[in-house]
Design a protein around this nucleic acid. Structure first.
Length: 426
RNA sequence: GGAGAGGUGCUGGAGUGGCCGAACAGGGCUGCCUGCUAAGCAGUUACACUGGCAAAACCGGUGUCGGGGGUUCGAAUCCCCCCCUCUCCGCCA
C-alpha cells in the first residue's frame, strides 16, 4: 500500500510510475474523494469540539443543581448532525481505502519499462546448457519410467495439478529441502523458521495477496484460514503490528513450507508435469531491513538463491522483470530461470523481490530509528528455491541415455551417497 | 465440544458514567547533583488524522483503553455482537 500523503504530494510522479505498469488505478477519483473527505472530516471535528465543550458545561451545571434540559436538547441536535456526517466519512474512507489498497507498488527507477515479460532484461547467465547426443525425455516420462513419479495416481487421489512422488523421488524432494535449508542457515546466515501452513486474512492482506487476489488462494470453508500460497505470507507477518529496534535489523529468515495456489486463470498453461501445481514445496528467504540498505539486500538475497543453483550445477539466468511484469507488491524483482532442456528455454525457479515499505505499511512493521522516530522497514523475499521445479530440472538436465539420472554432487550427502537414480532400484 | 476468567500506554497494574489519554510502580530520555562500575532529585516519555505553515519547531483540534454497533447531553466505565488469550473438563496427533 502506498502512503496516502505521498500520493497526494507526488501525484504526477505516482501517475507516471504507475503508467509504466499499465492499468487504471483511479488516481483522479482518489484525489477527489480525499478532498471531499477532508472537507467533511473538518466539519465533523468542529462539531465534535462543540459537543465536547457543551457536554462538559452540562456536567458542571448539573453539579451546581441547575436545570440543563435546554442545553441537553441543543447538544442532542449537534450529536445527530455529527452522526450523519460520520456516516458520510465512513463511506468516503471505505472508498479511499479500497482505491489505495488496489494500487500496486511503484516500480523502482532501475526497473526496465515495458508492458509485459517481453520487456524483461537478462542480467546475467551462469552455466552452459548441456548438448544431448540423444533425444532427452521430459521429467514426466523420465520420472514415470524410473518409478519415482506417479501422476496418474495423484490424479486419482485428488485431481489435476498434484503430484505423487515415490521412493527415491520422494527422498530427493526431502534431500533438496534439507540441502537448501542447510546452505541458507549455515552459510548465508538465515534463521530457520517453520511457520503455520495456513494464515488468516489479516496476514494475507499484509503481504498484498488480499483483497485483490483472493481468487488465487484456497480458503478453508467456514473459517478465516487460507492455505498459504508461499512462506512469504506467514514469515513476513511474524512482525506484523510490531516495532523493531534498529539494532535488530536486518533480520533474515528461511522457511520450508508447502505452497498452495489455485492457479485460476492459468487453465491450459503448463498442464503437463510438475511446473505448475496446486501444491508444491518451496524454501523461501525473507528479510526485514533498514530502508537505506534494501537494494543491497536484494542483490545479496538474489545471490544467496543463485548459490543453490550453482552448487547443483544447473544452468540458469537472472532476469530483471519489467514494469509490466512486476508483481503487485514489488518495487523490483529478479527472476532466476533454470534451463529446461525439453522446453528448450529457461523457466522461473525463483523470484526475488524488494517490496520496500509496501508490505510493511500494510502489515504495520516498523522500527525505531536512531532519531527515536518510527519508520516502516523494507521487506524482501525470494525463493531459495522452488523445490518441485528444482526436482524436475535435475531430472531433465542430469538424465543419461539409458534413462538413469545422475544425482548432483552437492545433493549426494543428503541421499545416502547415491550417485544415480536407476530403474528398478528406486 | 462444555464451563469459567480476562483483553487498558514500552511493561506491570489502577480505574464502573463527566475532574481519565488515563492513578501508581517499573523502564526509557533530559537536566541537576554526586565523583564512581550505583544512588538521589526534578522534568519528560503513545499513536493516527487534522488546522495554523511552503516546511520544521511549536501551538491548537479530533479520534484511539481488543474490534464493531447501541444507550446517553457526555462512555475505558452501561448494553449487544464479534475476535483473541488463559484455566479446567472432554476429545485427539
Amino acid at each position: 500500500m502506498l502512503d496516502k500523503n505521498f500520493v497526494r504530494e507526488n501525484l504526477n510522479l505516482v501517475r507516471d510510475r504507475l503508467a509504466s505498469r499499465g492499468g487504471d488505478y483511479h488516481l483522479e477519483e482518489l484525489m477527489a474523494t480525499d478532498a471531499e473527505w477532508k472537507k467533511v472530516i473538518l466539519r465533523t471535528e468542529e462539531l465534535r469540539r462543540q459537543r465536547n465543550e457543551a457536554s462538559e458545561k452540562i456536567g458542571k451545571l448539573k453539579k451546581g443543581g441547575e436545570d440543563t434540559a435546554a442545553a441537553q436538547a441543543q447538544v442532542k441536535k449537534i450529536s445527530n448532525e455529527i452522526k450523519t456526517l460520520e456516516e458520510k466519512v465512513q463511506l468516503l474512507e471505505k472508498r479511499l481505502n479500497s482505491i489505495l489498497e488496489g494500487i500496486p507498488n511503484l516500480p523502482h527507477p532501475s526497473v526496465p519499462t515495458g508492458v509485459d515479460e517481453t520487456a524483461n532484461i537478462e542480467v546475467r547467465r551462469w552455466g552452459v546448457p548441456r548438448r544431448f547426443n540423444f533425444q532427452p525425455l521430459d521429467h514426466v516420462d523420465l520420472g514415470t519410467a524410473l518409478g519415482i513419479l506417479d501422476t496418474d495416481r495423484a490424479n486419482k487421489i485428488i485431481g489435476a495439478r498434484f503430484s505423487l512422488l515415490m521412493g527415491i523421488g520422494a527422498q530427493m524432494e526431502r534431500a533438496l529441502i534439507n540441502f537448501m535449508l542447510d546452505v541458507h542457515t549455515l552459510e548465508h546466515g538465515y534463521k530457520e523458521v517453520l511457520p503455520p501452513f495456513m494464515a488468516n486474512s489479516a496476514s494475507l492482506f499484509g503481504t498484498g495477496n488480499l483483497p485483490k487476489f483472493s481468487q488465487d488462494l484456497f480458503k478453508v470453508e467456514g473459517t478465516d484460514y487460507y492455505l498459504i500460497p508461499t512462506a512469504e505470507v506467514p514469515v513476513t507477518n511474524i512482525y506484523r503490528d510490531e516495532v523493531l529496534e534498529a539494532s535488530a535489523l536486518p533480520q533474515k529468515f528461511v522457511a520450508y513450507t508447502p505452497c498452495f495456489r489455485s492457479e485460476a486463470g492459468s487453465y491450459g498453461k503448463d498442464t503437463r508435469g510438475l511446473i505448475r501445481q496446486h501444491q508444491f514445496n518451496k524454501v523461501e528467504l525473507v528479510k526485514f531491513v533498514d530502508p537505506a540498505r534494501s537494494y543491497d539486500e536484494l542483490e545479496s538475497l538474489t545471490h544467496d538463491a543463485e548459490d543453490i543453483l550453482q552448487r547443483l550445477e544447473l544452468p540458469y539466468r537472472v532476469v530483471a522483470l519489467s514494469t509490466g511484469d512486476l508483481g503487485f507488491s514489488s518495487a523490483k524483482t529478479y527472476d532466476l530461470e533454470v534451463w529446461i532442456p525439453t522446453q528448450d528455454c529457461y523457466r522461473e525457479i525463483s523470484s526475488c523481490s524488494n517490496f520496500e515499505a509496501f508490505q510493511a505499511r500494510r502489515a504495520k512493521i516498523r522500527f525505531r530509528a536512531a532519531d527515536g522516530r518510527r519508520h516502516h522497514v523494507h521487506t524482501l523475499n525470494g525463493s531459495g528455491l522452488a523445490i518441485g521445479r528444482t526436482w524436475l530440472a535435475i531430472l531433465e538436465n542430469y538424465q543419461q541415455e539409458d534413462g538413469s539420472v545422475v544425482v548432483p554432487k552437492a545433493l549426494r550427502p543428503y541421499m545416502g551417497g547415491l550417485e544415480a537414480i536407476r530403474k528398478n532400484e528406486s
